[in-house]
């Protein structure tokens, strides 16, 4: 009898333990979601831009998606009267730091390839309405390798959109970093797009571990 009673008590206890908190259980679907943007000081950005009075940093924000992605948005001054903000966005994709993180990853926050002809056409139309846009035939090069860009112009203004994906994990990126995506959009009154691209050409990535520059690798 006492054996049965003990068994019953243990069963009840085990059931209670197993079901404890069931009333408060929710599906954990938030670990992969994107947090709202929050403001950060420019000094907290993983990138430094060369001083440029035309394009001062107006605001900086960051958000994360799961434990894998951190996205930064740097709003730059816009000396034109055109709609839309000048900006640099940086997405840093890190490698998961746990088995669970490797198994359950959020959807990638940027597409690869970064653009198709169709998506680029749509983007240019949205970014630079009523302007004539052309995609540059040849890539340009900054510290982190080649990047592509497009130019949009009207009678008074010129705009550029540049994009770059850094994935050279063998030589450039630290082992913790899977990829870095950069996108830069600037409108200015100069007719020369190179002037508008100068901030993108001169930017420096400042991650906790050093990102090596592409040109520094050429002799290796």
């Amino acid at each position: 009898m006492s054996g049965v009673s003990r068994f019953l008590r243990l069963s009840v206890l085990a059931t209670a333990l197993l079901t404890a908190g069931c009333g408060g259980w929710v599906r954990d679907n938030l670990t992969q979601s994107t947090t709202p943007w929050r403001r950060v000081q420019p000094t907290a950005l993983p990138v430094s831009l060369p001083d440029n009075p035309q394009f001062p940093i107006v605001a900086a924000r960051m958000r994360s998606t799961g434990a894998v992605y951190k996205s930064y948005s740097v709003v730059l001054g816009n000396p034109t009267a055109l709609p839309g903000e000048n900006r640099l966005t940086v997405d840093v994709q890190t490698l998961p730091d746990s088995l669970f993180g490797a198994l359950v990853q959020p959807a990638r926050v940027f597409p690869v390839p970064l653009y198709t002809l169709e998506s680029l056409t749509r983007t240019l139309a949205a970014e630079f309405p009523d302007m004539t846009a052309t995609v540059a035939d040849a890539a340009r090069r900054n510290r982190y390798g080649d990047y592509d860009y497009a130019i949009a112009q009207d009678e008074e203004n010129t705009c550029v959109l540049a994009w770059q994906l850094i994935t050279d994990r063998a030589r450039m990126l630290p082992e913790r970093i899977e990829a870095v995506r950069l996108e830069y959009r600037a409108c200015g009154t100069s007719r020369n797009p190179r002037v508008l691209l100068q901030p993108f050409d001169g930017l420096v990535l400042i991650l906790p571990e050093t990102v090596l520059e592409a040109d520094g690798l050429s002799g290796l």
Partner: peptide
């Protein structure tokens, strides 16, 4: 109105 809210805030 020109969708430049950061500059607007400034």
């Amino acid at each position: 109105e020109l969708k430049r809210p950061s500059e607007a805030e400034a």
